[in-house]
Amino acid sequence: MYNPILSVSNLSVSYQNENKKLHVLKNINFQSKEGEFISIIGPSSCGKTTLLKSIAKLIDPCFGQINTNGKLTLVFQDYSKSLFQWKTVRQNIEFGFERNGKTGNFQKLINLVGLKGFENYHPYQLSGGMQQRVAIARAIAYDPQIILMDEPFGSLDSQTRLRLEDELLRIWGRLNKTILFVTHDVEEAIYLADRVIVLSSKPAKIVSDVRINLARPRNQIGTKKSKEYIRLWDKIYKFLQ
């Protein structure tokens, strides 16, 4: 088989609340190969964020193992809380370069995320969609092999969301990054990914791992009309029931 860039084996996570133990993840197993785009979908509060945080080593699992073959970073759902408010767009993005320990091509990156002309703005002067693009650019500047994204477009209006989905695919197409993309939106999950991992409700188990063989490049209108897309949608939607 292939050499996985990320492998999660028998992962179980629980939180200790006062004297009650809350089991959130139960025996999660999956692997990802380099350059893969994986969507993770599951019902509300099933443990999606917990899964990403465990992979990012922000929480200790109570059982199981996570192996990563390369640097990773996480794009938080709450972009406004994650950006550095005292820094400008440029400084926020350059933080990624600094942490990577290398100088990067800022101009190329700012063009890639479509924020040219806003370099000297502070986060509070930007719309939500623009702030999320700064957060994504900062993650890319860090040049990780794996990018974890926690419902990055969850709080945006649907128009901005569709546009950013396409931008993300375009960026992903240019850089050879492995992306783990958490969402609660079936359409978004299918549209973006090579694979959709479906989680059950708490304690979350993997109920299905669906390969998405839709042609790339994809587009919001054509792709979502195709028979295969509709078949996949039905299939995944049923798993979520």
């Binding site: 990012a56 640097k71 996480l74 938080f76 550095f84 005292w86």
Partner: peptide, 23 residues
Amino acid sequence: VQIDTGRVFGMNKLEITRSIKIP
């Protein structure tokens, strides 16, 4: 979230204090 951001960019405690907590 600010502290977690520092951690996912590979910062240690001292770096987080200096560059994230103090500002």
